[in-house]
């Protein structure tokens, strides 16, 4: 029954099937995106206007930056639920610094440093404790929400001067600056994941942490570095969002953690880690932005939007290949 020939054929017959499934999985997200584009364009021709397409990119830019950072965490088998609250803290750090010093440069520095430090602390907690990242960052998330309230004294911190002029109003070749920032973040993450040892270590730790340890990878240090890197991205997003809103708000990061994780997972990075791409994440981010924009342009009422969005996220995840 089990001749050598029969068994030799087994792995060979498995390979094309697996590849086919993978390709189909990669294309389903594109197909879903395309479907939404076509349906919306038929429903409202203005959808395809350059202005609207730029609007969509502008609307998802902060999310895209946060989700890029989250991608490498999920690849490494990690997770950071505190990114939304950290975004608020970073944004408030920026707004407060600008308010007190009048220096936009110092404000940017404050936001980016705040995000990075928060990420590094999350990384240390995750790397040195046996509790799951989910629980640990749920704790820091709640803590940071409180910090944001304390920093703001309960009210918005208004006025960011040149930051608003650049990120809120400014553009270059008609493309708003936050959009450039998002694509830069995605490019940086793409390069890290593909061409650096840090990226490779993230894949190895997410794929098999024990094998990574036995290969001499300093797992703890790498985890801290990855969370700090994601925190850096969150800080940048916080600075940009503060500019866009011309104010730091304790509520500005509301819901970012779940949307960022949803975008990463829709983009094909499994929650168990070991694989994933930041280009997939871009697809997930665009899907979230497109759906919201599409519903607004088609005149889907406020009472329907959440349900429809949920339906589409669920469908997009179901259509993904199995991890």
């Amino acid at each position: 029954m089990s001749s050598p020939a029969a068994t030799a054929a087994k792995p060979a017959s498995r390979k094309p099937g697996a590849l086919r499934g993978q390709d189909l999985g990669r294309y389903t997200l594109l197909i879903v995106l395309l479907l939404i584009v076509v349906v919306t364009a038929i429903g409202n021709p203005r959808f395809l206007s350059v202005n609207n397409l730029l609007n969509i990119l502008f609307q998802v830019s902060a999310l895209g930056i946060v989700a890029s950072g989250q991608t490498i965490l999920l690849i490494a088998g990690g997770l950071d639920l505190s990114v939304g609250a950290a975004l608020s803290v970073a944004g408030l750090a920026t707004a407060l610094t600008i308010m007190h010093t009048g220096s936009v440069a110092l404000g940017i520095l404050a936001g980016v440093v705040a995000g990075t430090v928060i990420g590094a602390i999350n990384g240390m907690l995750v790397a040195t404790n046996r509790a799951t990242p989910f629980i640990i960052t749920l704790g820091t998330m709640t803590f940071l929400q409180g910090v944001a309230i304390l920093m703001s004294g309960g009210s918005p911190i208004n006025g960011t001067g040149a930051l608003f002029d650049v990120f809120g109003l400014g553009d270059f070749l008609r493309v708003p600056w936050p959009v450039y920032a998002m694509f830069l973040a995605i490019l940086v993450m793409f390069l890290i994941l593909r061409f650096t040892t840090l990226g490779r270590y993230a894949f190895a730790i997410g794929g098999n942490e024990e094998a990574a340890r036995l290969s001499g990878i300093p797992v703890r240090r790498i985890k801290i570095a990855l969370y700090a890197l994601s925190g850096l991205f969150v800080g940048v997003a916080g600075v940009i969002l503060t500019g866009v809103l011309d104010s730091g708000l304790p509520s500005m990061g509301t819901g970012y953690e779940l949307r960022a994780i949803a975008a990463v997972v829709i983009g094909g990075t499994p929650l168990i880690g070991g694989r994933g791409t930041v280009l997939g994440t871009l697809g997930g981010v665009l899907l979230l932005g497109l759906v919201s924009n599409s519903m607004n342009l088609l005149g889907v009422g406020a009472n329907f939007q959440s349900a429809v969005l949920g339906l589409i996220i669920t469908a997009a995840v179901l259509l993904q290949k199995k991890a």
Binding site: S294, V300, V308
Partner: peptide, 13 residues
Amino acid sequence: AVLALGTAILAPS
């Protein structure tokens, strides 16, 4: 899933 998606998008428009 695709069908549900299409319906969800088209219906309210």
